[in-house]
Simulated assay, not measured.
Amino acid sequence: MAIQGNFFVFEKPHQLLRAVSSKIPTLEDGEILVKINYATLCGSDLHTFCGLRQEPCPTILGHEIVGTIIELNANSLLNDATGKQLAIGDTITWTVFASDPHTAVYNPDTPQKNDYLYKYGHRQITEQDTFHGGLASHIILRRHTYIRILPKELPAPIAATINCAIATAAGAIRLAGKIKGKRVLISGMGLLGLVCTAMCKESGASQIVVTDIDDMRLTLAKRFGATEIFNSKMDQPTDLTNTADGVDCFIDMSGSTEAMETGVAQLGINGTAVFIGAVFNQRKLQLDAEQMIRRILTIRGLHNYNYDDFSEAVDFINENWQKYPFLDLIEKEFSLDQVNEAFDYAVVNKPIRVGINMDLR
């Protein structure tokens, strides 16, 4: 018997999302039907809602999701990324993309940049293609989606953020190189920056300096392992480190051109900068090329993450979710029927995350 599902449609910026009820299509080979337990509103969802970025419309927003398998295609025998066989009732997380490894341009180091990528929460609704975003009762996972089974005791609000912010932070750590014993500077204490701070702490960084323009977020960063905090509106750039040698690594999660310029200027010899946050239009960076050459600097960018980053994120949360106050980062919850109120709250109050709890009525 066909299952009836619900989702909310985004059509254009600043317009109320529209509720739709529809029968869920029959699964194709390799597909999985998941009942969504929880979703969170990512910064990119808010940027789309506010018109700062464009998505093919109409669409179902939301890609930070956790859910429970309720149906597997009868012709499919599927395993998660660790080799465990998937079964009905499993709580799972998955990559925000499905990437076909058989395309001519596929690169296992950057599967998120493959041709014909299927990105959850970023697709246009068609008659043949629905239930692909998080602001819905269900989602259909397509073939070539990387999946991990999660422990039942992991709280859904934390689990929902693994496959975007936490996996991206893991990618930043990978690009930064060896962290143990290093001096790290991180700008932007949203979810990405806070997770990155905790990951640097667990990786054995000797110094973790963080910056933001919000004192409350800076205070929160101390609970995630920051050794020093600076308000970038109030403190001078030369105050960011207490050593003349500069920092070994700078990671920008803010997307602020000023923060990126200041951070690169703090790097010492052989320093590495990793840019994550600048995913919207802004002015061009002004960097001192001579100093980049003389200090032998490396600058790298990351958009989304690869499979190793995703698995690192799952393992990190499984091991550390009780050690750091991750649950405090979901500042307010709404039901799926309250999704428009959730967007209004997020735009006005700028919380680290807003949660959509599918069990709320």
Rank of each mutant, 00 (worst) to 15 (best):
A2C: 09
I3T: 09
Q4W: 09
G5F: 01
F7I: 05
F8I: 10
V9I: 15
E28Y: 08
I32V: 08
I36H: 07
A39F: 03
T40M: 08
L41W: 01
G43W: 04
S44I: 08
S44K: 01
T48A: 15
C50L: 14
P58Q: 11
L72T: 02
G83I: 06
Q85R: 15
L86C: 06
L86W: 03
P101F: 04
T103E: 04
D109V: 11
N114P: 02
Y116M: 14
Y116R: 15
Y116C: 13
H122K: 07
R123L: 13
Q128H: 11
D129S: 12
T130L: 12
F131H: 00
G133T: 04
S137C: 08
S137T: 13
R143A: 13
T145P: 00
T145W: 01
Y146N: 09
I147N: 03
R148I: 09
P151G: 08
K152S: 10
K152I: 12
E153I: 10
P155N: 06
N163S: 13
C164A: 10
A169M: 11
A172C: 12
I173W: 02
L175N: 08
K182E: 11
V184M: 09
V195G: 03
T197Y: 02
A205Y: 01
Q207H: 13
V210Q: 10
V210E: 06
T211V: 04
L220F: 06
G225T: 00
T238G: 12
D245V: 08
D245H: 11
G255D: 02
S256P: 03
T262R: 11
G263K: 00
G271P: 03
T272H: 03
F275I: 11
F275T: 06
V279P: 05
N281H: 09
Q282N: 13
K284A: 15
K284Q: 14
Q286L: 12
D288W: 02
R295N: 02
R295K: 10
I296G: 11
R300G: 02
H303L: 15
N304F: 10
S311N: 13
E312L: 15
V314Q: 07
I317C: 07
W321H: 11
L327R: 11
K332A: 07
S335H: 05
D337C: 09
N340R: 09
D344W: 05
V347F: 06
R353N: 06
L360N: 10
